[in-house]
Amino acid sequence: MSLNLEDVARIARLARIELSAAERETTRDQLNDILGFIEQLQAVDTTGIEPMAHAVDVVQRLRPDVVTETNRRADFQAVAPETEAGLYLVPRVVE
């Protein structure tokens, strides 16, 4: 499997990354190199081996259901670009 320039443009758009024409070519080559590594990995016979979802074979630690956070809105909003009436303001989005 290999990616063409169109695939790269689409992936960049989904990730909200702007790429110039030159960057698109470099990125395509780099991504195709990575896909090459993955092909090597996929060539290994893993029949009968349970897939792992994480590199470390340990399980999730759980937290008791207790409210531990306090209201720190003022701190957080002090570094926000724009706020009003306790809300974060962003460019208008309409769906």
Binding site: E82, E84, A85, G86, L87, Y88, L89, V90, P91, R92, V93
Partner: peptide, 8 residues
Amino acid sequence: FHGRTGID
């Protein structure tokens, strides 16, 4: 919000 969107 004068043309902006408020986020809660």
